[in-house]
Design a protein around this nucleic acid. Sequence first.
DNA 1: TTAGGGTTTGACCACTTGGTCAATATCACG
DNA 2: CGTGATATTGACCAAGTGGTCAAACCCTAA
Lengths: 205, 205
Amino acid sequence: MTKARPRTRIQQKNSETILEAALEVFSQHGFRGATLDQIADVAGLSKPNLLYYFPSKEAIHQTLLTELLATWLDPLRAMKPDGDPVTEIMGYVRRKLDLARDYPRESRLFANEILQGAPRMMEAITGDLKSLVDEKTIILRRWMDEGRIARVHPVHLIFSIWALTQHYADFDVQVHAVLGPGEPDPYPEAARYLEVLFTKLLAPA
Amino acid sequence: MTKARPRTRIQQKNSETILEAALEVFSQHGFRGATLDQIADVAGLSKPNLLYYFPSKEAIHQTLLTELLATWLDPLRAMKPDGDPVTEIMGYVRRKLDLARDYPRESRLFANEILQGAPRMMEAITGDLKSLVDEKTIILRRWMDEGRIARVHPVHLIFSIWALTQHYADFDVQVHAVLGPGEPDPYPEAARYLEVLFTKLLAPA
DNA sequence: TTAGGGTTTGACCACTTGGTCAATATCACG
DNA sequence: CGTGATATTGACCAAGTGGTCAAACCCTAA
């Protein structure tokens, strides 16, 4: 029941090569700023060859976004109502920060799309994403009702997790420029900082 | 000693009209995604007329970025070493959040630029921006040494203020989609949330 | 070996893009 | 007025864009 796309070994390999190249280019220049020639160049394939595997520039972009969404939502999905609230939330923060560190291009692709008004993702955002947030919001609210974490606005809590973690991927250049050359990897310190921040924020009164 | 650009009343007015239109278009589509035709259309001027006032698309963009930077740094500049530390920092958060609410296009223009690796702002970022952060970092560190606010990484503290406030402008579409139609203006609640977050974070042990 | 499909590409096309320019229209001011 | 400087634009251009297509190149299974 998987996507029927790759039928032969070559198709499998080239589709992946193209998507990898497209991720590189789209995440750096946005949809309109990216060109098929650039993608073809990065992929080491000819432009007509790209269009042999994907029907259009649109289709490549769409495929990336769709595959991205799952990866993007997984860490939140993994926040379970049974565990210790603070541990669960801190785990989510941790996973989201790891995602920013390990998949910065995906983060930027997403950021580009949202920045431009999410013209090609609106459905997913008002659908799957909102549903998931609504679902997790209920859990968060229960934890607050039970006095196990401090009472804050649950949706803004989630926004703050997104903002604080994705910032390190999306504004990577700025982060490195401001920290200076002495701090080549900001993530360990970021992890410590966010740990403190959310621990203090969530500690029940 | 001001910019010599506008010499006549017409030049003054049209330059402003063009920059206003360009801000609208650039902030929505990024540099490469925006077209002079679009900008001309929004400005209500002909394309050759744009190029009568600005020598190139680049120049329009550059002018916007330069003017933006000052606005962008002002709220941090206003954080003074003399006042009460928590009040000063909360004031900065507040001003930055107001900026996101009142000038979301500027925020997105900036985000677009940084996302794409800041090819046209690198100088300003490693220069003015870094200097200012370095300067304010010293103040923050002193406050921490004096035990007047909790000890956290000062630069990551600043990052977190940027991330949390700009998120509401840059990811506006997502914020509204997730909150749903019942919450048309997220800013009052955001202000309350950030107030709590930074109050708890900064409270001295 | 070879026939048949899967794969690759050079040449091409219609359209958009940033930018030019000469011609025209409008304005300020003596 | 009228006249010189300022403003405005239609027509145009070269380069770049997404996309097409027929011809050629593989690869493999019988």
